[in-house]
Computed example of a mutant assay.
Amino acid sequence: MAFSGCEKDDICVDETTPQLVIEFYDISNPAVLKNVVNLKVTGEGMTEALNTFNGVSKISLPLKTNEDVTKYHLLLNSNSSTASNEDVLEFNYTRQNVYVSRACGYKTVFELNTANGFDLTDATITDGLWIQDTNLQTNSIITEDEVHLKIYF
């Protein structure tokens, strides 16, 4: 009843700016999903964690809509002082604003650079990478209905 005065396009039901979808797999059995344990994700320059993921095999991370680079620190086993390990993912992309509708306005879609769509580095060289392999599924980040990057550990 509250929406009876609204026109169809006064309510945004379409997808807005998509996030990057990452799925985690078992390195010893690459067809099997693997849950992360206390994965603390912090954006470059942020003082607080974006989120801490626990017991999930899929996460979504936002890309910056006002820059062509987004860098995340991924700290696995973040609650352990001896078993924690931090890797860094830096995504390089171009942005395009796409009109969605009158109610939704514009959304930003991303195209990861072909040559260097992302870089994986170790935050602390002595502990080694916990991310043992990656598989980029698509360079185009247009929707959240698909996995964009697979990580094996």
Rank of each mutant, 00 (worst) to 15 (best):
N97F: 04
N79S: 04
G45M: 00
P62K: 09
I125D: 14
V109G: 01
V41Y: 12
R95E: 01
T121V: 13
V21I: 14
T52E: 13
E67A: 15
Y106P: 00
A115E: 11
L74N: 11
A83S: 15
K107F: 08
A123K: 15
N51H: 09
N113E: 13
A115T: 14
P18G: 00
L74M: 11
D26V: 06
N51E: 12
N66W: 03
N135V: 06
I22D: 09
V32G: 06
N79T: 08
G128V: 05
K40R: 15
N29V: 00
E111L: 12
A123R: 15
T108D: 01
A31R: 10
N35H: 07
N77V: 03
L136I: 11
K58E: 10
L120P: 11
E111P: 04
N29L: 04
Y72V: 08
Q132I: 05
N77H: 01
L129C: 13
A49P: 08
R95S: 04
D119Q: 11
P30R: 06
K58Y: 07
N35Y: 05
T124Y: 12
L112A: 05
T94G: 14
L120G: 14
L76H: 08
W130K: 03
V41W: 11
S78D: 09
V100G: 02
K40L: 10
T138Y: 06
S81T: 08
S57W: 02
G45S: 10
F53C: 02
T82K: 12
I131L: 07
F24L: 01
D127M: 12
Y25T: 03
Q132P: 07
W130Y: 12
T47P: 07
T138A: 05
A83P: 05
F91L: 11
S78W: 03
V41A: 12
G55T: 03
V69F: 11
I59N: 08
D26I: 09
I141G: 06
L129Q: 11
Q137I: 03
A115M: 14
Y72L: 10
D122K: 14
F53Y: 06
I141H: 01
M46E: 13
V100A: 05
K58A: 09
F118M: 11
L76K: 07
N29W: 01
N51W: 06
I125N: 15
T70P: 03
Y99Q: 00
V69M: 13
N54M: 02
G117I: 02
G117K: 02
T94Q: 10
V41M: 04
V88P: 10
